[in-house]
């Protein structure tokens, strides 16, 4: 797989990262180098080996169905870009 300018543009758009000519050039170079490095893994024979979901040998920790969090609205809404007592306020997003 090779990273082209179109790939970089698409990834930038999907991840909402602003890009420009210079950024794209650098990215093409960096990402292709990374891919080439990772490609070394292709040398390993992996037939008959199940993909590993996690390297941690532990069971998934589970919680009980209990409500412990009470109203934390004030602390939460501090992070809203605009002030409002009830809601996060964001620039209009509508179809």
């Amino acid at each position: 797989m090779t990273i082209t300018k179109d790939t970089v543009k698409k990834i930038s758009k999907l991840s909402r990262i602003a890009s420009n000519e210079k950024f794209e050039e650098n990215m093409i170079k960096d990402l292709n180098a990374i891919l080439k490095f990772v490609d070394q893994l292709n040398e390993v024979k992996i037939e008959n080996i199940e993909p590993l979901a996690s390297t941690v040998e532990q069971e998934l920790i589970k919680r009980d169905d209990e409500v412990k969090k009470m109203n934390e609205k004030k602390d939460i809404l501090i992070n809203s870009p605009e002030e409002n007592d009830d809601f996060y306020v964001v620039p209009k997003v509508i179809e």
Binding site: E82, D86, F87, Y88, V89, V90, P91, K92, V93, I94
Partner: peptide
């Protein structure tokens, strides 16, 4: 949930 009809320029979000 996003609410779009409360304000002409903004959307309100309820998490």
């Amino acid at each position: 949930k996003s609410i779009h009809d409360q304000d002409p320029k903004n959307s309100f979000v309820d998490l």
